[in-house]
Computed example of a mutant assay.
Amino acid sequence: MAERVDLRGSEQTMLITLFLRERDARSAHPVLGDRFAAEVLARVDHDPGALRWFSSDTVTISARARRLDDWAREFLAEHPDGQVLHLGCGLDSRPLRLDRPPGARWIDVDLPRVADLRRRVYDLPDDVEVVGASVADPSWWERVDTDRPTLAVAEGLLMYLPPTDVDGVLDQLLTRCASGVLAFDAVSPWVLPVSNAAFGVTSVDTRFAWGYDRDALVARHPRLRGRDDVCVTDLGARATAGPWHLVYRGFDAVPYLRDALRLHRYAF
């Protein structure tokens, strides 16, 4: 029997992501190929009709996850004794998709009811710690090793947080951790009102709250050193052929559309 799920606000988006990854995995040419998505989606009570509204995002969301997986693999190869902070992990199977060196540490963090659901629907290995807390709650950061190289991954998270919470999360990371990498996706400021209006005609009760401004981010957090700035529609174009390839290349030709959703990697 499927799990009964009580999700609110931005938590509902993790079902969208899971639905799109399941859709990608059963396609003829998967981009991410998340072999866990179908089993987990089948165990969670959801409305497929409502989720199909977001089907056109299948390739970009899967390509986004694949690039973040690649960055995580690269980090763990360089730092087999490092730690990964999987912020706002939702129902993402990332720690199962990646090979983790025996000396590495992995911490999944999400709200308590999401963390509880995650423990029920995934058979996570003992070396994956699941913390039930808001990422903006300073208390859970006491669990973090200050002397390990640290990768903080935030996928589909920061745009839903108030700007003060985004700064608070980064303050904790940069104050407590001696060195590492921050990898996240972000929307441009102009996307906030447009996407929030679109969310208003769906059953998803959530809104974007934070838009990425590179200069403001680095001025507020001067320890950050830019490494990568990747257009998600370019990733989509590279992952597809035929009509969708042309659609994504069309998006890339328009600066506002090209910059709507991007992936960023910073070192510190």
Rank of each mutant, 00 (worst) to 15 (best):
R4W: 07
R4V: 12
V5K: 03
D6P: 00
D6R: 12
R8A: 13
Q12C: 07
M14Q: 14
R21V: 06
R23D: 06
A25D: 13
S27T: 11
A28D: 14
P30G: 08
L32P: 00
G33K: 06
G33E: 07
A37F: 03
A38S: 15
A38V: 05
E39G: 14
D45N: 12
D45K: 11
D45M: 03
D47N: 14
L51P: 10
R52G: 06
S56Q: 09
T58L: 08
V59M: 03
I61T: 13
A63P: 01
R66T: 06
R67M: 12
R67K: 13
A72N: 00
F75V: 00
F75I: 01
L76F: 03
P80G: 00
D81N: 09
Q83S: 00
V84K: 01
H86Y: 07
L87I: 08
C89W: 05
G90Q: 06
L91H: 09
L91I: 11
S93I: 05
P95S: 10
L96Y: 02
L96D: 01
L98S: 04
P102D: 09
D110M: 05
P112D: 08
D116L: 12
D116R: 13
L117G: 10
Y122E: 07
L124H: 06
P125I: 07
P125L: 02
V128P: 00
V131G: 00
V131H: 03
G132M: 10
S134W: 08
V135D: 07
V135P: 08
A136P: 01
A136Y: 08
P138M: 09
R143Y: 05
T146P: 13
T146W: 04
T146I: 04
P149A: 03
L151V: 02
L151A: 07
V153I: 15
E155K: 02
L158E: 03
L158I: 13
Y160W: 02
P162C: 04
P162R: 14
P163H: 07
D165V: 01
D167V: 01
T175V: 09
T175W: 12
A178M: 09
L182V: 15
A183L: 12
A183N: 09
A183P: 11
F184E: 08
S188C: 07
W190L: 12
S195M: 15
N196M: 10
A197R: 15
A197V: 11
G200Q: 07
V201S: 12
T202N: 10
S203Y: 00
S203N: 10
V204G: 06
F208W: 14
Y212I: 09
D213I: 06
A216M: 04
H221R: 14
H221Q: 14
L224P: 11
R225A: 13
D229C: 05
D229R: 14
V230T: 15
V232E: 01
V232S: 02
R238W: 00
A239N: 04
T240M: 04
G242D: 02
G242P: 00
P243L: 11
P243Y: 02
G250M: 10
D252S: 15
P255C: 08
Y256W: 15
L257N: 06
D259Y: 11
A260M: 15
L263E: 04
L263K: 08
H264N: 03
A267N: 06
